[in-house]
Design a protein around this nucleic acid. Structure first.
Lengths: 252, 252
DNA sequence: ACGATACACGCAGAAACGTGCAAGAACAGG
DNA sequence: CCTGTTCTTGCACGTTTCTGCGTGTATCGT
């Protein structure tokens, strides 16, 4: 491993995780702690980090731009995610669907929230790794590459063994007649299986989904408790849904 | 070998792997390190790369975007991973453990390899998303945060339903008396369960693991087919293992 | 206050470096 | 075909840089 490479790694780590523990990095990279400390000292001398006992911290808060990843999430999704995250009660259990909106929900969850998250998405599970108090249960099965979730018989069977207060459902289309739809039949079946395991199902629907329809039906409106969207609350489609008894949670 | 040809090779290497180690390419191409250094110096003068002690790095960080993920992997792990990846036969099934070395194995797999990968790590599963021909089966269960794998009864039960040709096992300690060890009891049990489902078990052991021991025993040597390491093949610990019938695969 | 841990410093061996030099290949001109 | 020039390459040398270890000191948690 090149010395310069190591230095880059440290800076990357600092930006990504907001801190460096000398001992951990040394063990992780298979090098001596001395080298790590030396690098840290040099970096600190250049003003690139702030040396502290046990490791280092970012020099300026701006360096630890943890929010950078979140900023790539469109505003709409982020707003929807914030509302959805607020539905998760401390101590409660939530089933989280896959997809980018669900991922935004993870980022919107308070980092120290004490809750149980059940998901069939490895991406979601990985994102929850830095929520120390969140208990994560991953539903196994065949990985469906397109949307990065597990599907199929094994996954559906695994779903039978869990239950939760809340299911946050992601879809690709929300249409007053076609209902909630998604692009793949297996995926639709899995979402149905998950909805059956939760007391309440809320749909994550950023505005671009409203009025759209995909190939496969997921759920009838009767099985949905509410819909979270950043679209205009007076959008005609939403009005019709409200008339059918679907609770509309506005995210703006 | 033409000088210009060599230059192209270096630039290609830089783009592909994100770094150049003078000594390695010299040995690889069968030329002197002096020539490599000279080329690197010229390339740096043209602004095509950044000279560092031991080799060179890409001039602009943007060039290394693809390699960035890999370049943070220490050399030892990457070499071990390359050897391990070569054990995966097209059409075969492999059980992949969690951990950074296993992650390196994913990166070392040919992108178009046609195989089945079974894993209990959501991180590994997510990394396999861009291997279109790889069939991925995720073992569900309670997510163990520290090492980002599923563990516990549910995961062990899920393991019972799969089988594979090969299990690539990651551990934190390889010790002639303590055996293969890891830092958590649940994790150790899960690794045992996985080993029982594969015809062959190979241990991924980058050099810093050799001679180390953690709290919990994973497997006795009898259940291990071989060990892949970048440590010196004449390391005393390895000699003792070889004497016990463990196949040692050198990664260097 | 005390033990444990992290730290800085210095040292020595190893590795990488730059430079000068000489041998060899490629080439142009006679 | 021969010769001189230029360029490249590998080697040898002295120098610089890096790394791991031992030592003693500072800092943390209890």
């Amino acid at each position: 491993m090149l010395a310069a490479e190591r230095r880059d790694h440290l800076l990357g780590l600092l930006a990504r995780e907001g801190k460096i523990v000398a001992k951990e990095v040394a063990a992780d990279l298979g090098i001596s702690e001395d080298s790590v400390r030396r690098d840290l000292r040099d970096l600190a001398a250049e003003g690139l980090c702030q040396r502290v006992y046990g490791g280092a911290l970012p020099a300026s808060p701006a360096v630890a731009d943890y929010a950078a990843r979140q900023s790539v999430t469109p505003d709409g999704k982020r707003r929807v995610a914030a509302v959805a995250a607020a539905l998760v009660r401390p101590g409660g259990a939530v089933i989280l669907d896959g997809g980018t909106t669900a991922l935004a929900v993870v980022h919107a969850l308070p980092p120290d929230l004490d809750c149980t998250v059940i998901t069939h998405s490895p991406t979601i599970a990985a994102a929850l790794l830095d929520h120390p108090r969140a208990e994560v249960f991953l539903l196994g099965g065949r990985l469906f590459k397109h949307s990065a979730v597990t599907c199929g018989a094994a996954a559906a069977e695994a779903a039978l063994n869990v239950s939760a207060d809340l299911f946050l459902l992601g879809v690709t289309g929300v249409h007053p007649e076609a209902g909630l739809t998604t692009g793949d039949a297996e995926e639709a079946a899995m979402k149905r299986a998950l909805a059956a395991r939760a007391a309440d199902t809320y749909v994550l629907a950023s505005s671009e989904k409203i009025g759209a329809a995909s190939r496969f039906r997921v759920l009838p409106w009767e099985d949905v408790s509410g819909l979270i969207t950043d679209a205009d609350p007076h959008h005609p489609v939403l009005d019709r849904l409200a008339a059918q008894g679907v609770e509309i949670l506005a995210a703006d």
